[in-house]
Write a protein that binds this DNA or RNA. Sequence first.
RNA 1: GCCGAGUUGGCGGAAUGGUAGACGCGACGGUCUCAAAAACCGUUGUCCGAAAGGGCGUGCGGGUUCGAGUCCCGCACUCGGCACCA
Length: 844
Amino acid sequence: MTTHDETPASYRYTSELAGDIERRWQDRWDAEGTFEAPNPAGDLAAEAADGRPLGDKYFIMDMFPYPSGAGLHVGHPLGYIATDVVGRYRRMQGDNVLHALGYDAFGLPAEIHAVQTGEHPRTNTLANIANMRRQLRRLGLAHDPRRSFATIDPDFVRWTQWIFIQIFESWYDDEQQRARPISELRAEYESGARTAPDGAGWADLEPLERRLLIDSRRLAYVDESPVNWCPGLGTVLANEEVTAEGRSERGNFPVFTRNLRQWKMRITAYSDRLIDDLERVDWPESVKNMQRNWIGRSHGARVRFQVEAASTSFDVFTTRPDTLFGATYAVLAPEHELVQALVTDAWPAGTPRSWTNGLETPAEAVAAYRAVAAAKTDLERQAGTDGSGKDKTGVFTGSYATNPVNGVQIPVFIADYVLTGYGTGAIMAVPGGDQRDFEFAEAYGLPVVHTVQPPEGHQGAYAGEGPAVNSAQTGDGASLDVNGLGVAEAKAAVVAWLEAHGAGEGTTTYRLRDWLFSRQRYWGEPFPIVYDESDQPIAVPDHLLPVELPEVPDYSPKTYEPDDADSTPEPPLARADDWVHVTLDLGDGPRPYRRETNTMPNWAGSSWYELRYTDPHNPDAVTDPANERYWLGPKTPGGSGGVDLYVGGVEHAVLHLLYARFWHKVLFDLGHVSSEEPFHRLFNQGYIQAYAFVDERGVYVPADEVEERDGGFWHDGRPVTREYGKMGKSLKNVVTPDEMYDAYGADTFRVYEMSMGPLDVSRPWETRAVVGAQRFLQRVWRLLVDEDSGESLATDDALDAETLFVLNRTIDGVRGDMDNMRFNTAVAKLIELTNHLTKVGVRA
RNA sequence: GCCGAGUUGGCGGAAUGGUAGACGCGACGGUCUCAAAAACCGUUGUCCGAAAGGGCGUGCGGGUUCGAGUCCCGCACUCGGCACCA
């Protein structure tokens, strides 16, 4: 024990004494490797200390942090403390616990810092990691330090790139519902077992055509199609990174839809499995719902509408094929590829004035409408959208299509309330059953036919349940009559009829789009891709990995005025000429190649890092299969497998968690992992928030200088108003763990955070309440240690019956609380036990 | 509009359908001290009452039950997600 003043009570449990105790143990844990978890195979392989086999495993993960320069505030460690408590508890129960913490270290803040200072982002990032390690070490977490890594480590980047190549070199087999190596697809084409979509045989194709055919099937592919272009950030963004308002999640800049050549990942191939396998994991229902919602599966039918005059047809998607008899017009998205073909030379006789927008010909009217629609940003196109209310606009194409069930000629419009990216980009409009169609029909004088009997007195569109009406064919050869059937039966009957008559089929569509995977940034993983003279992508061979970032004079992409929609992406790597142009021997002699100059998005490293914890130094593989099976494999036959407990914030519900599941499933399909899901149990922690205070001028004042009296809040003698929100420098309300270590010690801080309330609920930080946790630990200390002499007071005396009862009740209660992550009530029960012991006295 | 979560003292929060408010903060009273702080002990849902004691109490309105914070129906409000998604 460190020396203390020989004053009375010199062994009181103060912050200084707590700090001495904590540091001494932290040093010992490091020296003895107390929390190192042995692996079944590889460099971390070892038998348990006493020679027994490894035993049951328990793999715990936190959502790893971005190493911010601002360091930690007291909100950050909340989840880390909780997982640490679980890990220590499981370890005491005899489990082999894997718990470590890495760093998600690529990212925009380091790049911005580099642009401002000229310092390489790696330098700054590594310094930030060192600082966070220091802050977290003082917290006393029971981690295996050998398993920590950062996503920017060349060794980690190597495997991120290797996984990218695995995805690039595979395709999705719809029949088998799994990814397979691209070599097997090539073999199927070569053998004739499979032909190109246009029916061409492999032998008929030129070499370049063969490559294009293969490339079009890859799970990672280059595609020119509409993407989210953000001039303010100078980069493109994934759909998941764009807010509902059509702005960038980071920076809140406007986002424009532009056709650009970009890398994508075919996550849509996994839509069904990503939804269905949610049944197999132990996640909060709210997060499962968010993922289901994001993937947006809806069952319905594809229905073909013939346009005889133009000798063509278009498909619509509908979730309500039962209402087909009520389809009184059709609408294509303004961008639909068939629009030009449907535009007639002149308005048909009797075309209402309101359908033409006052223009002389359909061509003029359609061109004008499309021009207006194209000029709108996503934001403007959705403006005023609150579920209803926006006036529907559109224009007639001049063409009529045939309703396949009743032969009625219905007018075909274009209108921007039909979206090009969803379904087939075309709808059959049923004003009797759809509010949007009803509004459009009202505006353009189109007929409304109800096909479901609405309740008495119902006005407008009716989308509810009820018997079908007005839904029978008439005349010779009538073969479809669903009148009287309920919605579900009518749907089935109409779909069956469509399929029998070649006019459509049951189908499913999804809201999910393929994952836009390239970014025009410096501080990310380079793609392990080069282009040859024909400009087609080729994977860099494994032995040349990792492809490392070049030194560049300027770390930022070219950014533009946020509203400059016509600007073009320009990544910083494109300026590194010596790096871009390389000569490689890829098996056919040295040839010139051009490197891909985009980098991967931030989500790449976090999409697979759970695997690396299991075998962090493996030079030959992402992880040894034996280690993966032990730590992540299914615990029961048919189980999903995955991390036993994953704790983090709910903000990653559809970003990180969806991407990580997708990559894990690809690796499963390709035989690299035995688990189908990366994270078996997910727990969302709440946030620690904080009060902030503004004076009359609207300026934030330091929160720790505000006093509360007379029912108000005062700073420097002047009234201030209280706000509630995040902890941050700008709000002058940051409290750091370091302050808590100094004032109370890490254990008091940990007890306080665990006792504040349920882990999954957000709540305000209150520094003045921390003292309660310290008083509790002081009481425990005083029960066991003489504050004057430092002598132990622990005895072997038998407990009285009441104490034994309280003790057993506590053990039982705390055990239940641990299993349910109810740390606040566990602490309360321990305080009750302590209070009981204080009252009866255990001193000899 | 749709989906999900929630609403309990001054505050954070406890309560397998069975004594509402565990535990903690704060507040009030006391011990110690020249004094203060810290620490320790006690009181603390609210109203009436000197007290004993009693009335009222878990967002609002109904219901089930011997018994409802908890279960059911309806409503209001708060937070989160999605949204011209056919």
